[in-house]
Each structure stands twice: as structure tokens, then as C-alpha cells.
Design a binder for these strands. Sequence first.
RNA 1: GGGAGCUUAGCUCAGCUGGUUCAGAGCAUCUGCCUUACAAGCAGAGGGUCACUGGUUCGAACCCAGUAGCUCCCACCA
Length: 884
Amino acid sequence: MSIAKTYIPKETEEKWYSYWLQHGFFKSVPDEREPYTIVIPPPNVTGVLHMGHMLNNTIQDVLVRRARMKGKNACWVPGTDHASIATEAKVVAMLKERGISKKDLTREEFLTYAWEWKEKYGGIILEQLKKLGASCDWDRTKFTMDENLSEAVIDTFIHLYKKGWIYRGIRMINWDPQGKTAVSDEEVIRKEVNQKLYYIKYHLVGTDVTKSTYHEGEPPVIIATTRPETIMADAAICINPNDERYKHLHGRTVNIPLINREIPVILDNYVTMDFGTGCLKVTPAHDLNDYELGQRHNLPVIDILNDDGTLNEKAQILVGEDRFAARKKIAVLLEEAGVLEKVEEYKSQVGFSERTNAVIEPKLSMQWFCKMGEMAKPALDYVLNGEIKLIPDKFINTYRHWMENVRDWNISRQLWWGQQIPAWYLPTGEFVIAKNAEEALKEAQLKNPEFTAADLTQDEDVVDTWFSSWLWPISVFDGFKDPNNADINYYYPTNDLVTAPEILFFWVARMIMAGHEFRGEAPFKNVYLTGIVRDKQGRKMSKSLGNSPDPLDLIETYGADGVRVGMLLCSPAGNDLMFDESYCKQGAGFANKIWNAFKLVKGWEVDETLPNPNAVAIEWFGNRFNQALTEIEANFAQYRLSEALMDTYKLVWDDFCAWYLEMIKPAYQHPIDKVTYAATIQFFENILKVLHPFMPFLTEELWHDELFGERTENDCCIVAQLPVIGEINSRLLADVEVIKDVITTIRNTRKTKQISDKEPLELFVRSNSGINYGSYQAIISRLGNISKFDTVNDKVEGAINFLASTDEFYVPFEEEIDPVAECARLAKEKDYLLGFLKAVNGKLNNERFMANAKPEVIAAEQKKRADAEAKLAIIEENLKALAC
RNA sequence: GGGAGCUUAGCUCAGCUGGUUCAGAGCAUCUGCCUUACAAGCAGAGGGUCACUGGUUCGAACCCAGUAGCUCCCACCA
């Protein structure tokens, strides 16, 4: 059977993914094994795969596949999030294209379109994940608006309401005029923006009417504002009561320019005297601080903005204009009216909607809130006492800070796509909270038996999407409707959660709260926080910057395995990663390397009669493999995935390919003995297992080759069990390091002396280290192209010599060795050793070192001294011989 | 404004409780090889004042203090 020269991922990926699916290897049902569970951070149902998902899901898949190969019952639950704002925006956009406006539709009609849209486009991202190799249990795919999940949302709402933790209130909320909904504080991103600070004159009322010009009368009050378009909503002018400059204003009133509405001057310590002019216009409807000021001073609230950010008739002027257009226009009007003192450039923080990037408008509104205080406490404890580990742990501080300063959660959203708030309003202005309309009516009739269904109106709003995703680890196992079912009892709490640090509070913290509140248990044990995927210049990858490669293109080019390796190569836990396509290239190159190693072994003919000349090499690699496995295991235990991958990479490339295979490879067209052959195949199979979590497709493809013997249908790499770490002979490993050093030095010598690799050399060793060179003769001869290798008791004349460990090696060399250069080389080495010895002796002769250092450290230093002295003796001897 | 973190080779990062003359890996670079597994390769080499300044210590990349630069999080000054 001929085999392709290079690995071609495309031909294997689809094949094996369907094979895995068909054979149910991703499926999990509770059994007697230990469970290992991950719930996917549900991507937006509207989403398409981006680099962040690639990283995230590669990590999850590596963890899940490893758990599976360690005999655990691994279950990775996939699903999507209904993402109210994002999805509704897309549906509205789609309708607009069809010439339909949302406001012409009833809620039911709109939702029909939305579901239609979801069925058509939702879940693309899940299909994309399959291309990456994600081994999710697809039969368990959930959607945050699935019936049971939605029901859980409603039930928990009722539960928390009954506990008094959900309440309704007027609050200044963050209004997104584009999404036309409230967003939570956490969804507001503050950015520094260049703005203008407008200085506007407000004329005092009640001064000498006859002296109507200000230069004769009292000067106007000048306020500084970044939002001149809101002056029509002003309710007062506020000054600091201690401000000497404005004592004369106490008790006065002023007129708002342009509309000449009279407003009072009020006094409040809130005003900073040295900012702006020390006079503040108070606009309770459009600024949180002003609102609070207004509350203190009983000021009216005049809301001049519509939901879409345009001015309403209360503004009296510029009605219908967008707030930003109005700002520009009013500046002109003020200028014309002669009341614009000056305009300054000004930098300040402005809130933007995370979802729509619109400038957030503070707005007073009736909203539903969820109290956080009581829930935050236990949720904080889980992390502080280590029941939940954050990886890396630097996030613990951030987490604590947030949890200690948590504010109530605005859970209502003025949208239709989502779970409608289970509140029904009565004609009396009261409301009832109930699971559905019938229940609501019953509740209402308790208040007054006269009420009929027609008297009830359900709240129009839906709950925040996070109010459903915080239940995710429980709701995917139907733990609300059926809190004692086999799945939830078996899989919950889950093991690892892999997500981005940006949503530590949005999601992770709230899941912990929900876990505690509804199950009395943390929802997971470890939270692995991935970094942000950035480009080489350190910019966050984003659609708008256009600096993000299409993940599917990458898979097309480098293969899923190559991309997976590429992602992990540059992703230290918790740190951002500077992604570059070259990492994927390296990943693909690695796949190819493995492919070619396989090709080599595959090509061997076995001669049953041959003896095994490779016992040492085989023993060495077996040990080296165990050593590497130990390191890999340790790195996984600490979630150092890139390190574990790098260990694997070096094990395969350096130890297996560059050393082991070169040691045992038979000469061209020569057969191999059966013992070496069998051992090598065994090694290869074990290597495939270790590689599998990182490179599932390639390893599965090779696994099924006849080289490894007959495989039954279910004998697949994906469900193979990882090799058990055997004993490690560290003496052997150390000796082989010396042998490798000898070989490298020979190669190096050839280079410097310009001896061709093809020219065989002789080698002699004068040994005192106790290394049994006899057993390594074959390896050294093979890899160093040595025709004769012997032990000697005396120096060899006319030879190049070098040291490895404390042993001296000689390579006879016909050409005259330059005594001057040789002396210089030896002298340099001697200097080094002397310096080294001095340092070591310095320690050993230091009483405090001897008193304080650990015994192992002292022993190591003593060994160093002995070795250095032995080497020095040899060098001295050589120097003497050369009569330097 | 408050808090957290980072700074080690050209790049991306290791360096676990201070203890090899401790400075390491991968990639990139340079040199020599088309040696029938792999040129997506092989063999070899070069490359760093561990941000800076002090301190603690027998010993500091590692601990402490300060300085500079970068990043992130939180925060209602018009």
C-alpha cells in the first residue's frame, strides 16, 4: 500500500468525525465510572466562529478527550445562547430588508419571525465546532430558550421574587437607544472620548427689569456642560453652598436660555467648586447624579428624550432631532442668542453599549432588579476557600473586588426575544407574579375575586439573557424541573469551565450564585480563564478591525489538528495570546512530521531470524517516554496546556524521531529484527495516544493502519486509555545524555575540522565515570559514523580530544593539530573550570552555606566539585603533554 | 481617582519552595548538507546588563522598597 508523501488533513477529518459520531464516542450516559463534565459557554445563537471560540473550544476538547482517555465518563454539553439583544437586532434587520417594521408586528408575529430566523441561522456555530473536532455530546445540545430552560428561568424568577430578592423600581438605567433596551452596568463600556465643554449663560430672574442688559445689571450664571442639548430638561442650577463667588445667587432663580423656563438655584455640597465654573445644571432625567440631586431637592423630572434618542415635545425646540444632531444645532442657537460664552475641548469618559456600540443614555425607567448582596457572599466564599479554583489565580482579587462591591442586577430588557417577565399588572396598578396567565388570574382573584383574565396585562419586557445563562450548568441537565434526575445527580457539579475573563462577572460569578442558591453546591470545580486572542500588534481580534483570520479558512489551510496545535502553542493560561498564522503552520508541520515517522516505520520489512541489536535504544526510549509522560501529566495537572503540548512536541520530534528512530533505523533496504519492530510499533501507538487530545484526526487515522494490527470497530484512539507511567531508570537517562553529548561533539568536530559526515572516524575513550560505553557502542558508531570505538588506558597521540562527563575522548586525526590553538582551547576550558571551582568552593567553604543550605543542595555542590576537579586534572595533563 | 498584573533572546513564552558558571524552550536567523521517512527535512552555530535603582542574603531573574513603561479591571465629577 502506498502512502501519501505528506499528511492531507482534509481526507481524514470528515471521515473520522462521522465515524466517532456514528459509534457514539461523544455520547455520555451516567454509569459507574467517575464523571468528567464540561458545559460549553454557550455561544450566541447568531454567532459565527471566531478565534476566541477556537481557542476556548480547543482547550475544552483537549480536556474532554484526555478525561475520556483516562477512563472517565466524559461529557461535554454543547448549546447556544439566545442572546436577546444581538438576535433581536438581527431579526429586526432581516425584517427591515423585507420591508417589515417591528412596530407593525404583534409580539407573537415578531417571535414567529425570530424563531424562523433562529431555526435557519442559529447553530451554524455548532456545525463549525465540529470541523474543529469538538467532541461534544450533541444529543444533549441545549438552547437557552428551550422549553425546560425557559421554564427554569420563570421558576427561578418567581422563587427569587418570593424571597424578596426581585423587586421593581424606578431607577436610572443605562439605555441603549439603538437596541432600545436597558443594559446592565456591566454591559456598558466606558471609553475616553474627545468632547466639547460648552459654557452657557443662564440669566437671573427678578433683577432690575429696566436694566435688561446684562452688562449693566447682574452678570449671568455660567454653567459648563458637555450636553447642551439637555438644557431644556434642566430642573435647577446647583452651586456649592460654601462658594463665596455665588453667595448672591442663594434663593434666586434663572431662566433656561432659548426656552426661558424658570428654574431655581439650589445648594448642594455635591458640586465641586473648582471644576468648570462651579455652577452645575441639574438635569434629573438625563444624569444619574443629577437625578439623585433632584431627589434630594424635590426637583421635577423632565425627560426630553424618546427611546430612540431623539428629542420629544417636552424639549419644546429641536423636537424630533437626534440627540447628537441636536447638540450641534443647539450650540448654534445658543451662539446666536448670545448666551454661549465659550467652548472648550474636553476629554471625558462616555459609556457605550457593549452590544450595539451606541452611546448609552442614562434614563429613568421602571425596571426589575435582582438583589445581589445575599447571593454574593456565599459565591465569594467558594472562590476564597478554594472550593472553586480560578486559573490563573490572579483573578481571585478581581473577583473578590467585584463581589464585595456588587450592585443590584437590572434584569429587565425592553425586548421581545427572550423569557417574558412573569408579572401581570392589574387595573389597580398592582401586579402579581405567577408562572402563567391562569396562575396569575388566580393570584389576582385573591386580591379581588372580580378580576377576569381581561384585567391582566403581562409585563412587556423579557429578562436579561444572563438571567437564563446563569442557570446553564443546572438547566442543561434539567435540574430545575426535575432536581433529582439521574443526569444532574451524576454530572453536577461539573469539573472544568473554560471561558474568557471578560465574562467572569457577567456569567461565572452569577453561575456560582445560582449554583449555590438552587443546588447548594458550586457549579464547577475549576475555572480556566483563557486569554484574549490578539493579533501580532497586540490588538484584540475583531470583526470591525478586520484583523481576524476566518477560523474555517485556517482549518482548510492547516488542518484542524494544525490549527489546534497552533492555538495552543501560543496560549499560556490566563494571558492574552498574540496569535499569528505561523503557529498553525508549525502545527501543520508537526502533523507532517508524525506522518513521515509513520511512513518510515510502515516501510520496514521484518526478518524474523535477525537478532535484536537495539536493546539499549529500546530501553532508553521506554524510559524517556515515561519521563516525558510524567512531565506532561504534571503540566496538565496545573492546566499548563501549552507546556504539556510542547513536552509532547519535543518527545515526538526530538526523542522519538531525531534520536530513537535514527538509532534503530535499519540501513536502506535492509530488514529489521522483530523485537525492535514490535517495540517501535508499541512506542508509536503510545505516542498516538498522548498526541490524541491535541491532534485527534491524525492520530485516529494512523491508529487504524494495519501496522498496528487488527482493530475491532470500537477500538479507536479516541477511546484508548492513556499509557500508565512506568518506572524511570534515571541512571540510564543520564548516561544517554552523555552519549548524546559525545555524538553531538563528534558531529561538531566534523564541522569545525571540515570532515565529511560520510567519512568514518575512529573513537577512543579513557573513562573514569563508570559509564559502560560498551553497551552504547552501537549507538555511538551509528550516529557518529564511527568505524572503531575502543576503550584505552592511556592518552592517544595525534588525536583530537574532548571531554564528555568526566571522560576523555580521542578522535585520531591525521592532520597536524595546531598546538597553539589547542593550548588556547585548553586554557580557556581550564579558566572556566577554575572559575567554576572557585564558585563551588566558595559555597562549600562558607560556614553559613553549610549551615543553611539543604543537604541535597550541599551534596549537589560536592558532586560538582568532584566532577570539576576530575575534568581539571585531565586538562592539566593535556596541557602538560603539549608543553604549553 | 482606586485596584490588580506585567517587563527575561529578533518574536511568543518557561524559569514551581532564592541554590549548577543559570540564564532556558519553540519559532525566526546564520552556516553546511537534496544522507531514499520528512527540504514542511537533517546536522551544527550565533543570540540576553533577566526594565531601572537601591536593599535583604553566604547566594537574587526569583524576596523587599522605589522609579519608568505597558496592560487590564473598577469608578457618577458636569
